[in-house]
C-alpha cells in the first residue's frame, strides 16, 4: 500500500488480524520519505511484513517510472534502517526452492543447508555424490517477496494503464469500481506480467480494452476459490484475501480510487490449498 495512504489503509486491512503499532507507523512515516529521496523512487509502498521466529522483516517497495518493471524491494527490522534486496535470478529461485524449509528465522545471514545425494553409474559401482546447497535467509526473503508479487499482487481493473510506449503507469482518472463490480472477482487483476492473457480466444479479447486489460484476471486463477472476497468495515470496503499465500490482504473502497495490498504472514505458501476448499 502506498506510503501516503498509510494513515487509513492499515485500518482497512486490519480485519485479517495484523496491524502495525503506533511506533512502527510513525517510524515508517519518517523513514519512507528519506528512502524515497535517497533511492530516487517515484513512490514508495509498504509491501508488508514477514513474520520470523525471532524477528520480523518489514518490506518496502520502491517504484520507478514504470510501475511494473522498475521495482526495488528493501527490508528492515526496525522500520528505520533499510537494506536493499538483490534482483531475483532463476538460479536463486531454484536454490531456495531446494534448500529453504520451515519458518523464517529473522536473521538475514542464517544459512539453510540442503544435502542431496546423487548416484552415478549403476550396480555396485554406483558412486554417491553429495551436492550441498546453501542459501542465506536474505536470498530466501528476496525470492519469497518476488513469488508473492508474481502470484498474488492485486489491483482493481482500470487503476493502471499501459501507454503507447509500453510503460505501465497509474491511471489518474481511475475513480474506483462500482459496488456491483467490486463484488465480482473478474474486476481484479494480477499486477505482474500476464501469463495466460494470450491464451484467451479472440471473442474474449474483443471485449477487452488494450490500455487497461493488459493483465491477468484474478478469477482465472487455479484452483477456483483461491481468493476470498468480502465486504468489511460495515460493508463499505471490499477486501480480498489470498488463500494461496495466507496473509495477503487487498482492500479497495468502491467508488474511490483508494486501493492497496499488504502481506503480513509467515512467508509460507499454502500448498495444502486443494485439500482445504
Amino acid at each position: 500500500m502506498d506510503s501516503n495512504s498509510l494513515y487509513y489503509s492499515l485500518e482497512l486491512v486490519a480485519g485479517s488480524g495484523h496491524t502495525l503499532n503506533l511506533e512502527q507507523r510513525t517510524a515508517l512515516q519518517t523513514s519512507l520519505v528519506i528512502l524515497k529521496k535517497n533511492y530516487k523512487f517515484h513512490r514508495v509502498l509498504l509491501w508488508g511484513k514477514i513474520l520470523g521466529l525471532n524477528n520480523d522483516y518489514f518490506i518496502a517497495q520502491g517504484r520507478g517510472e514504470d510501475e511494473m518493471e522498475d521495482k526495488k524491494n528493501l527490508y528492515s527490522f526496525n522500520c528505520m534502517d533499510w537494506f536493499l534486496l538483490p534482483p531475483v535470478t532463476d538460479q536463486m529461485i531454484e536454490e531456495v526452492s531446494r534448500a529453504a524449509k520451515g519458518r523464517f528465522i529473522g536473521d538475514p545471514s542464517f544459512v539453510y543447508e540442503h544435502i542431496q545425494t546423487r548416484k552415478h553409474g549403476n550396480g555396485e559401482k554406483a558412486e554417491e555424490e553429495e551436492i550441498m546447497t546453501k542459501v542465506t535467509e536474505e536470498t530466501r526473503l528476496t525470492v519469497v517477496v518476488h513469488h508473492i508479487d508474481e502470484e498474488v499482487s492485486v489491483v482493481p481493473r482500470g487503476a493502471f494503464v499501459r501507454n503507447p510506449h509500453g510503460l505501465v503507469q497509474i491511471n489518474r482518472s481511475f475513480d474506483g469500481l462500482s459496488h456491483s463490480e467490486a463484488g465480482k472477482l473478474d474486476s481484479f487483476l494480477h499486477f505482474s506480467k500476464p501469463k495466460n492473457l494470450k491464451k484467451k480466444s479472440i471473442l474474449e479479447m474483443g471485449e477487452l480494452n488494450p490500455a487497461i486489460d493488459f493483465l491477468d484476471v484474478v478469477s482465472d486463477d487455479i484452483p477456483k476459490g483461491s481468493w476470498s472476497l468480502q465486504f468489511e468495515c460495515a460493508s463499505k470496503v471490499c477486501v480480498l484475501r489470498s488463500l494461496l499465500w495466507l496473509g495477503l490482504t487487498f482492500y479497495h473502497v468502491p467508488m474511490t480510487p483508494q486501493h492497496g495490498y499488504i502481506y503480513i504472514g509467515n512467508g509460507l505458501k499454502n500448498l495444502d490449498l486443494p485439500f482445504m476448499l
Binding site: 485500518e11 482497512l12 486490519a14 480485519g15 488480524g17 495484523h18 496491524t19 502495525l20 503499532n21 503506533l22 512502527q24 468489511e232 468495515c233 460495515a234
Partner: peptide
C-alpha cells in the same frame, strides 16, 4: 493488542 501488532482495527473493535 495494538501495541502487540494485533487487532481488528479500532472502529471494528468498538463495534
Amino acid at each position: 493488542l495494538e501495541q502487540a501488532g494485533v487487532g481488528l482495527g479500532r472502529e471494528e473493535m468498538q463495534r
